[in-house]
Design a binder for these strands. Structure first.
Length: 234
DNA sequence: GCGACAG
DNA sequence: ATCTTGTCGC
């Protein structure tokens, strides 16, 4: 799929935060009429130990069968340091590279991290959503926002709230008795729908199959890349 | 004011 | 994110 270059690239933490504040109001937290999610893409990034290489992967699954429809990877040098709240600027370059190599356009993007459940209400999922224009949601493994614990069964959930008490996401139990995941809206999908789609993609494990597939692929691609840089003896 | 803070 | 073995449990 085609992905147009975002905006100017921030050269400081201050500029990056300012950019997030500028873009946050552009997020559309509602679902387009008639949205049908037939395919969903998982996105993830693996880091080399030396910290000098990032490898992104996107895997598109047919939601009904969980069959892989398409996938792509991309390498990139880190273009921004890891700063909590700004990590989209670290992962966006390789992720957009991988998206460009996709031959299909997914109906939904699931990012590994927060969407609106972010200090400036503009996490990675929101950024990805605005850049691609696609329905996007964030599924994080750890929360950035306060939350009461959800009930113990699959499907139970509790609101993630910001300073003002507004619901910016949900702690969603995808497997009974297992730590929940933290779902928040990225762009062009509402929270109820996002949670429903995440549950559909979690028939067996805590994390969505899309995320698991992308995680597996970027790790394999990283192994491949390191192998070429430092081939074994002879 | 200080600390904590997705991956 | 990454470094890491075995182990308890469904």
């Amino acid at each position: 799929m085609r992905v147009s270059v975002p905006h100017e690239w921030p050269e400081s933490v201050e500029r990056a935060e300012a950019l997030q504040r500028e873009l946050a109001p552009l997020v559309d937290p509602t679902t387009p009429d008639g949205l049908t999610v037939t395919t969903a893409a998982g996105l993830d990034v693996a880091y080399a130990e030396e910290g000098d290489l990032l490898v992104a992967a996107v895997v598109v699954l047919d939601v009904a069968s969980l069959a892989v429809v398409d996938s792509a990877t991309a390498l990139a040098a880190p273009a921004f340091p890891y700063v909590p709240g700004l990590f989209a600027f670290r992962e966006l370059p390789p992720l957009l590279g991988a998206l460009e190599r996709l031959s299909v356009t997914p109906d939904l993007l699931l990012a590994d991290g927060q969407g609106l459940a972010h200090p400036r209400r503009f996490g990675l999922a929101c950024h990805l959503g605005l850049v691609t224009g696609l329905p996007t949601a964030g599924v994080a493994k750890t929360p950035m926002t306060a939350h009461p614990p959800p009930g113990p069964n699959r499907g139970d959930h509790a609101p993630l709230t910001d300073d003002g008490g507004r619901e910016v996401g949900r702690a969603l139990r995808t497997r009974s008795g297992v730590k929940p995941v933290y779902v928040s809206v990225g762009h062009r999908i509402d929270l109820d729908r996002a949670c429903a789609e995440v549950l559909r993609l979690c028939p067996r494990y805590r994390l969505p199959e899309t995320t698991r597939a992308a995680d597996q692929l970027c790790r394999a691609a990283l192994r491949e890349a390191s192998h070429q840089d430092r081939p074994h003896q002879a």
